[in-house]
Amino acid sequence: MRRAQGIRTVALLEATKGVVVLLSGFGLFALLHRNVQALAEELVKHTHLNPASHAPRIFIEYAGHLDDARLQQLALAALAYAGVRLVEAYGLWCQKTWGEGLAAASGAIYLPFELRELLAQPGLLTFCLLLLNLAVVLFMVDSLRRRRAARPLR
């Protein structure tokens, strides 16, 4: 019963990520044919940030380089990523073996990047995210191992 609850928890986490990225993708589509740099400048002004300081300046400059083709590429990539996360969540929720395999593989892909980030810029948040992802991957691998051990021999 505990394993099933853990898998459902991971399914909810993946579904949440999928929905957030899905909404972000639709948000990017909404920016098509709009002056994204002007919107970024307005957002910086609205949040009372100094547009000359480092992060807001980079945000505004990057927004100035987003043309419709790039926005569409980013939106489609977000929709594809969200689709994978939502399919993974479905597979986990329904306790499908392929869902657990997909969760283990998709989580493991990020581990080297997260480790590199932790080594380059150590921080508590980076460390916690690496540990969380590692725990999910190990949990999924263990679940797959237990499922295989419980399967009768043919």
Score class of each variant (00 low, 15 high):
A30Q: 07
S53Q: 12
A55C: 00
K45S: 15
N133M: 09
T97V: 12
G107W: 10
Y81T: 01
A78Q: 07
G25Q: 11
G99P: 02
A89M: 07
L49V: 02
F26D: 03
L124I: 15
V10K: 03
L39C: 03
L134E: 05
L118D: 05
A55H: 05
A77Y: 00
N133H: 14
Q121C: 12
L111V: 13
W98T: 02
R8P: 00
G107K: 09
I109E: 02
A120K: 12
V20E: 13
W98Y: 05
A135Q: 05
V136C: 11
A108H: 01
V10N: 02
L134S: 15
Y62G: 07
T126P: 01
A80M: 06
Q121M: 08
E14M: 09
L129P: 01
V84C: 03
S24M: 10
N35M: 07
R8K: 10
L39D: 13
E41C: 03
V20N: 01
V10C: 05
T16Y: 12
L125I: 15
N133G: 06
Y110I: 14
G91Y: 00
R57N: 15
A69P: 01
S53C: 05
A108V: 03
F26L: 15
G18V: 07
Q37K: 14
A82S: 15
L49C: 05
A78D: 10
G6A: 04
F29W: 06
A89H: 02
L115S: 08
S106C: 05
E117D: 15
S106Q: 09
A15H: 01
A38L: 14
L102S: 07
A15T: 02
V19Q: 08
Q121K: 13
F26S: 03
L134R: 07
L39H: 08
G91L: 05
H54Q: 12
L13E: 09
I7V: 14
Q37R: 15
A40F: 04
T16V: 11
K45Q: 15
A11Q: 03
V136G: 06
G99N: 03
L32K: 14
L119V: 10
H46G: 09
A40E: 10
H54V: 15
L119I: 09
T47R: 07
L22E: 08
F29N: 06
P51G: 10
R8L: 12
H65W: 06
L111K: 00
L124F: 13
L12G: 14
L66F: 00
G91V: 01
P122S: 09
G6S: 05
L49P: 01
A69M: 04
P112R: 05
V20F: 13
Q5S: 06
E117F: 04
